[in-house]
Design a protein around this nucleic acid. Structure first.
Lengths: 234, 234
DNA sequence: TGTACATCAGTGAACGCGCGTTCACTGATGTAC
DNA sequence: TGTACATCAGTGAACGCGCGTTCACTGATGTAC
């Protein structure tokens, strides 16, 4: 029992994992609103009050599942960004975007939970921030790599949108935060591409594009590639 | 009673309006999940079963409110598109986009209901489609007007994203559906702008951009203007 | 190694909540003659 | 204009559901001596 801890510790860890697993499955199958401690307990053959030995409250369980969801997406995007480091930045961008989309379709309720409308009465604690930004930071890394390896070209004289002074100050701060050394116009395009990517995934997942086209994945790929071009990724 | 109908008809219409009004307010204040026939009845001083004389079920009430929400947004966007017909298309586009954003912030729960994650266990019936597309069709109208009045210029040799043949067929159908005579590349940019617009509104409203910048409205305006430029609106 | 006590996991009952929906009913309004 | 019947609005009780959370408890596991 030296390395693995006492029987109690081992079984506690196992049961905690079981609760999260079942919670995750309920979330995946029926959505956040239908996630209840009682149903999780029922499935595990324990009495509902027993769950409180492992989880503080329903909100606590939900928070852990949110963090899990963000981490699951974050890991996948990071992995694809890592794996494609030898490719052209525009191809990496497309691959990463398709990964976000695929994850969303594989985990629709989890996507809805983290990128959809907030769960009523629930406020995500600041703890979730680190996990919540992983996917987006992985996308940023593609742009940073492209800049550093000079695989970046902006049209010579693209007309420039004039930025409000305060927004420009915001951009200065943002550039420092995400360590991305690009000019205002390009940064704006990156933010546009980022919101467009998630916007289209959400529209597809929430059926706003139903009847618009049949080839949803092709449309997504085309839009993503176009945005990579606009950013200036080779 | 000739023109206004019988006492019964008048009072029926009034009470139906009351139910929808209270429902709308509950939706606005507490969100779709918290909308219940019992609470609406309570507020109106009727017994819960009485509401069933006016509304078939909770889902029926929700559907009517969804249609109302779409219509409310649709009307506002249509109005601004009408009112700006003399201005440059890019300015109209910006004005319309800001209207969508303002409506979303004024009616966050309604926006979440129609553009956020679907309500669990609820499927919007096809009846909602007409109202659901009004805002988007108003945006399209700006592009159509620009095309017809030749206030449209695309960069001469913008590199073109190659479209998959089946997606191109989709685009042919779409062009006919929305009566918008523009080439594939431009249509793609319009779709991008459309998803970007709602994507950024959703991100803002659902707090995904918290900490990113302080000047959210300026960012939104800059992104929208940039997209108008990319589409080719003067 | 054995015993005495402390810690922890799990039980089962209970509280109080709010919901959607149905149903037999009373009494008011509307209509046909 | 007056009466007999039909239609409709609203009542109040009830059914059955599931939820989060608390609490005093029993019995097993862990620890200090």
């Amino acid at each position: 029992m030296a390395t693995n801890g006492t029987t109690r510790e081992v079984s506690r860890a196992q049961i905690t994992r079981d609760i999260l697993d079942v919670g995750r499955r309920h979330l995946a199958e029926h959505g956040a609103a239908a996630l209840s401690l009682r149903s999780v307990a029922r499935e595990l053959g324990m009495v509902s009050s027993a769950v409180y030995r492992y989880v503080e409250s329903r909100d606590d369980l939900l928070t852990r599942l949110i963090v899990d969801a963000y981490d699951s997406l974050g890991e996948q995007v990071e992995a694809v960004v890592d794996a494609t480091s030898a490719e052209l930045p525009s191809q990496r961008w497309l691959a990463a975007a398709l990964t976000v989309r695929a994850w969303a379709f594989a985990h629709p309720h989890e996507y809805a939970l983290v990128y959809g409308s907030p769960v009523p009465g629930y406020a995500a604690p600041p703890t979730t921030v680190t996990s919540g930004t992983r996917a987006s930071l992985a996308l940023i890394r593609i742009v940073r790599d492209a800049k550093q390896s000079k695989q970046f070209r902006r049209p010579r004289r693209s007309a420039v949108v004039e930025l409000d002074a305060r927004l420009s100050a915001d951009f200065d701060r943002l550039r420092a935060n995400i360590d991305l050394d690009i000019d205002d116009a390009t940064l704006l395009d990156v933010l546009i591409a980022w919101t467009q990517l998630f916007g289209l995934v959400s529209f597809e997942l929430f059926s706003q594009t139903r009847g618009l086209v049949d080839q949803h994945e092709e449309l997504f790929a085309a839009a993503t590639s176009r945005m990579a071009m606009i950013i200036g990724l080779r």
